[in-house]
């Protein structure tokens, strides 16, 4: 069996890939959990699990979807263990939420807020597509959906965000 991540060279290669992917894995975990601390925990635990199982991977190209699967499962596992308190989006906005409080363009902040408010069914495929660069086919595989269902969700997600931006612009104009 081909095991590109076996041995010392494999360790090095795997560590390098994790290093490259880690920022986006954190971001993806954040959009899953909508909680910075949970995202950190999820990524930390996911990478440790991945590290222990790295030799089972047969192809370098499968690392990213494999890690995403682990992150999603780890998030679900954590969610099962600990029922998170529901936090209103308004509470995420402000000094306690660096994701929303850093100095960025107002439009980016508005959009970030709108994405936080999207239903999970729309937010997750959108993050997988735009942030993680997965194809609709790969997203369908990750989420256990048909490709048509993924396309519908992605279309609706963008429609919702588009409406929010237009509404925001109109409010500013009034």
């Amino acid at each position: 069996m081909n095991a590109p991540f076996a041995g010392k060279d494999g360790e090095t290669a795997f560590a390098r890939l994790c290093d490259e992917l880690q920022p986006d894995l954190f971001r993806f975990a954040f959009w899953l959990a909508r909680d910075r601390q949970v995202a950190e925990d999820v990524v930390q635990e996911s990478l440790l699990r991945a590290w222990r199982s790295r030799e089972s991977l047969a192809e370098i190209g499968t690392v990213k979807p494999w890690l995403l699967t682990i992150v999603r499962r780890e998030h679900a596992r954590l969610y099962e263990r600990k029922r998170f308190e529901t936090v209103p989006v308004d509470d995420l906005v402000g000094s306690e939420s660096p994701e929303l409080a850093v100095a960025e363009e107002q439009q980016t902040l508005d959009l970030r807020r709108a994405i936080l408010e999207l239903e999970d069914d729309y937010r997750e495929p959108l993050a997988l597509q735009v942030l993680m660069g997965l194809t609709t086919e790969e997203i369908a595989s990750q989420l256990g959906l048909t490709q048509a269902a993924v396309l519908t969700r992605l279309f609706r997600a963008r429609q919702k965000l588009r409406k929010r931006l237009v509404a925001g612009a109109n409010e500013e104009g009034n």
Binding site: E11, T12, A15, C18, D19, Q22, P23, F26, R27, F30, W31, R36, A39, E40, V43, Q44, L47, L48, W51, R52, P98, E99, V102, E104, E105, Q107, T108, L109, L111, R112, A114, I115, L126, A127, V130, L131, R158, L161, R162, L165
Partner: peptide
């Protein structure tokens, strides 16, 4: 719109990067 969505999704990455790398590195001894 996608360009803006990507900017919005790209939340700042905290020290978790260093933490997780250390975790992996400590396991591997790299």
């Amino acid at each position: 719109l996608d360009r803006h969505i990507l900017a919005a999704l790209s939340v700042p990455v905290p020290l978790v990067a260093g933490r997780a790398k250390s975790a992996a590195a400590s396991v591997s001894g790299l």
